[in-house]
Design a protein around this nucleic acid. Structure first.
Lengths: 341, 341
DNA sequence: CTGAAAGCGCTTACAG
DNA sequence: CTGAAAGCGCTTACAG
């Protein structure tokens, strides 16, 4: 089955020169005469020579492989990020190894370990939502360049790429206020979720700035914010004495659950209750009414993350500074908040 | 930055034994005494020894990396497949390198090449829809185990994992006939699409079996079957003299486009026109009415594909037979065809 | 039960 | 301009 494979040595024998010369010729070493270089390259092409990347990587302590660890590959947002990481890495000559944690902390640790063992040149990582102990990450960071994106942690001193969640939420909530809403509920995750907390901060600031009192009954937290939870929490909200007049959900999925429940109870959207989601997923334009939501440019995140990482890989000296880069988001206004006033 | 890394040699020096012995101890070679083995393993643990996989792979001509090439990572169906591939590979001790072709034939060829160059142990591949020349694939197949899934080609003599598209379509169309539909339109891709053709065959067989004449006007083909195309083709259909009473789309996306257009023209679904999609995407339960569709178990495809590949990698002798494995699908009946009769 | 040595395919400092 | 040689970290056939 396996074909005879062309090596430097074989070509050297055929041309009756040394492997050193062949190697140098293929790498465009200036010392080698044009003639020899040409000769070697021609033969290489003829024999479909492919350098054995493992031998090369092994020799040079560089594999040109980047490890990517994400919680869940099924998320559209994450797929968007991955897509751009693949594209950019390709361009720069890197290959991507992907691992999924499914939010399992133990798996996350194992994967980090395996990545290092596979000799990746660097790691891009989005934390599992259950990660509290960052020691394994610090350990990895100590060995290879590592960048966190989307789900990050302030406890890890490395470059981090996130969206401007606080500001995004502020804008979304102000939009609701601008269309006349005053009792704005929020569906969020529990405190340990970094992203959720940022969004929550923006929510609070928007209310404060606009002199709207905070009503604890309108702040609902859950561990896993899903479609079903969106429905359940919404049922809870509309059974309140004083109903909300808007619902802001930190995910589109839960927002869609909210819309479904509002439909069920014949509550008019957006007149009685407006709904805003977060992430501009595909579903947000399929649901009726179309969902107002915050667009998070996954491609930008992926692009910046991988390019920073490659920079850190290729200039190991310089990356002492661990900056946090915030990517701008956009509020996309659709029918679920479209009120003519 | 980079920490001192523990190697066999270093441990050998510390224990004052040979690297051969250290290597064998770690690999549980039966020759080595229990005592030595224990001693070595303890030290290895203490120093966080991680074998250099590149040196190992390089030595053993095995990298434990599987290359996966897919057209588009954003597709939910493909993500489902990838998720299971990652999971199963992990269990079996393989790492996954992913590349995306975006249906670009030239990129597809390059990626195949790079995969080989990276020394993957085998390749899992779903063809781009524009692939006609399979020579690059035959070339790869000649070097390493390779399995095609979902988008396959009869021209490549290798194991192929597909869904039972013909049967699935047959069942879907019979379902439409059973609820009393007689003028069933189909939205499909042009002839070169293997999957689309299979589905079309099932459509034709269902009509024939039920003595329904084929009406060419109800058979619409397009190159890229998208939401927009779903809308456009549906507009076309409802402007026919004799309208269809059902639309069968080979993708959910186009089916959703169809539904949107039917809404626009106030056509009742399913009473006037029923709609069936294909793939049971997330959107299919978000759209109103919920879409009847064919569920393709991506996880099954991923699971079988990767396990067959690993089998072929590990028993290179046996895989002469290139079988085609069909995965059963399920028709999920929802509101878009729910008629009480 | 253990070790010395060769070798996987490549690169590169050194020598000429 | 070119070559001989060492070495990256590991495994394994051979020898004892």
């Amino acid at each position: 089955m396996k074909k005879e494979v062309t090596t430097l040595k074989k070509m050297a024998q055929l041309l009756d020169i040394s492997t050193s010369t062949v190697s140098r010729a293929l790498n465009n070493h200036p010392d080698i005469s044009e003639e020899t270089t040409k000769k070697v390259k021609n033969l290489a092409k003829k024999l479909h020579y492919m350098p054995n990347i493992f031998a090369k990587g092994f020799r040079q302590h560089k594999t040109n492989i980047i490890g990517v660890i994400v919680p869940n590959i099924l998320s559209y947002f994450i797929s968007t990020i991955l897509k751009e990481i693949l594209l950019q890495a390709e361009i720069k000559g890197y290959r991507i190894i992907i691992s999924e944690t499914n939010n399992d902390v133990k798996k996350e640790k194992e994967m980090l370990h395996t990545m290092l063992q596979f000799g990746v040149d660097g790691i891009l990582m989005s934390l599992s939502k259950n990660t509290v102990d960052v020691d394994p990450i610090l350990y990895a960071l100590n060995q290879k360049p590592l960048i966190l994106f989307d789900k990050v942690s302030a406890k890890v001193p490395c470059t981090q790429i996130i969206i401007n969640g606080e500001e995004a939420a502020f804008n979304a909530v102000e939009h609701l206020i601008n269309i006349g809403k005053k009792r704005i509920a929020i569906l969020k995750e529990f405190e340990q979720s970094y992203n959720s907390e940022k969004i929550f901060q923006g929510y609070l600031r928007a209310l404060k700035t606009n002199n709207i009192a905070i009503d604890e009954k309108l702040i609902l937290s859950t561990h896993d914010i899903s479609l079903k939870k969106g429905r359940r929490l919404t049922s809870q909200l509309i059974s309140l004495q004083e109903k909300p007049d808007a619902i802001f959900s930190i995910t589109d999925t839960a927002a869609i659950g909210a819309i479904q429940t509002l439909h069920k109870f014949n509550i008019k959207i957006p007149e009685e209750i407006a709904v805003v989601g977060f992430s501009n997923s595909l579903n947000s334009t399929i649901i009726q009414p179309k969902l107002t939501t915050v667009d998070q440019p996954g491609n930008r995140i992926g692009e910046i993350a991988v390019n920073y990482l490659i920079k850190e890989i290729e200039n190991p000296k310089e990356y002492l500074a661990s900056k946090t880069i915030e990517i701008k988001t956009n509020l996309i206004i659709r029918e679920s908040t479209l009120i003519s006033i």
